[in-house]
Computed example of a mutant assay.
Amino acid sequence: MGKRIFSVVLTSLMAMVLFVPHTHAASVSGDEVIQLAKEHLGTPYQWSGETTAGFDCSGFTYYIMDKVGVDLSRGSYDQYKQGTYISKSNLQKGDLVFFSGTYKQGISHVGFYIGDGNMISATKSRGIAIDPVFSGYWGDKYTGAKRFLANNFFSDVYSEYWAYDEIKQLHNEGIINGYSDGSFGPTDQVSRAQVAKMVGKSLNLNPSSSAQFKDVSSSHWAYGYVNAAVNAGLITGYEDGTFKPDEAISRSEIAAIINRAFEFSNKNSSYRFKDMKSSHWAYDHVYALASNSITSGYNDNTFRPNEEATRAEFSAFLYRALN
């Protein structure tokens, strides 16, 4: 099941990468872009306008992005074909949000996301104004978002960090999230519930309301994803009927979940971790991942199966499995 779903997802992602026009990413922050945009609050609407005398929606985004060095197309439809796709759950200040079916079918409006579910855009009735993105007039017209700002990323994951590419791609695809303060916490331990949700999202599993564990109540933030992961055969609980969702997960447990999800074959890898005996419950899972270059262990030829995994380590495992 996992491979079939993955092949569809990968094909779609490859098409997006191959056919989306290149756009220079600005090094300014989202806050800087929003500050520039807010300077024009109240400026009147003008069809085809792209100056301070008056803007239409794409003229406004074109004007502001030009100020920060982004080579943006002029129309909203063409702007939507540029940038990096961003899921609704990972919107950050300065991302462009797009809407369809306003005065015509297809993409017909664009604005800047400013945080807290709001955007600033050029409206016909009020000129440059602030509106909610997901409710009111715009709510059912929301189509998607694109990112153009290089600095719109986690504050504690820099481009030189060993798992930067892995974390960035999973973040852009809406599979992983950070904390409310803008950080990711790459060295923090990753919990069993977090892994269940992230693997479930990467496989497009629908959250389930069928309760599986006595310690994962319907009010738990990962309730639906934990249930879905059980139904898909990806995770199991403990003999006492618990899952312990908020406990840290070990490297061997992650290996088992990822291998069940993507069904890797063991190619008799040349890797022979000195701390992985054939009697270990996760032996086959670990070597399946090693055979497929998902993991290479540590420099001392160990895998450390019982060591608690970090958020960065899990991101690397999942990224490699998806790619």
Rank of each mutant, 00 (worst) to 15 (best):
D116A: 09
Y179W: 10
V190S: 12
A150P: 00
F60Y: 15
N301F: 04
S219F: 03
S293V: 02
Y103V: 01
T143S: 14
Y137K: 12
V110H: 05
K104H: 14
S209P: 00
E307H: 14
E160A: 10
A228G: 11
N231V: 01
S217A: 11
Q82K: 13
D131Q: 10
V286D: 04
D246G: 05
T310I: 08
A282P: 10
G139P: 10
V157H: 02
E173W: 15
S202V: 00
L322M: 15
D181M: 01
P305V: 08
G42S: 11
I34D: 01
S100F: 01
S270I: 00
S87Q: 14
S73T: 06
D71W: 00
K67I: 03
V157G: 05
T187M: 12
K168C: 12
N268Q: 14
S315D: 11
Q189R: 15
I5C: 08
S159R: 07
K244M: 11
A228P: 06
E253V: 10
S191K: 07
D95W: 03
D188Q: 15
P245H: 02
E308M: 15
S76Y: 06
P305F: 08
W47Q: 06
Y271R: 02
Y77P: 05
D188T: 12
F213D: 11
N118E: 12
I64V: 07
E313N: 10
V199C: 02
H171G: 10
T123C: 02
T102F: 03
R126V: 00
E263P: 05
I5V: 15
K124E: 13
G106R: 05
A229T: 13
G111D: 07
A316Y: 08
I107R: 10
T23V: 15
V68H: 03
R320A: 12
N292K: 02
S209D: 14
I254E: 05
K197P: 00
N118R: 13
D181I: 00
T51R: 06
Y62E: 08
G117L: 06
H22C: 07
H22Y: 14
I249N: 09
K104D: 08
A288D: 03
L318F: 08
N90T: 13
V17Y: 08
D31H: 11
S73G: 00
V230I: 04
S252W: 02
S7Y: 07
Y80K: 03
L149D: 01
L96I: 02
L234M: 11
N231K: 15
D66E: 13
E50R: 15
S180A: 11
V33L: 09
S48C: 11
M16R: 12
W162E: 10
K141T: 06
E247L: 07
A196M: 07
K67Q: 14
N90E: 11
A122C: 09
Q92V: 04
S76W: 06
A309T: 05
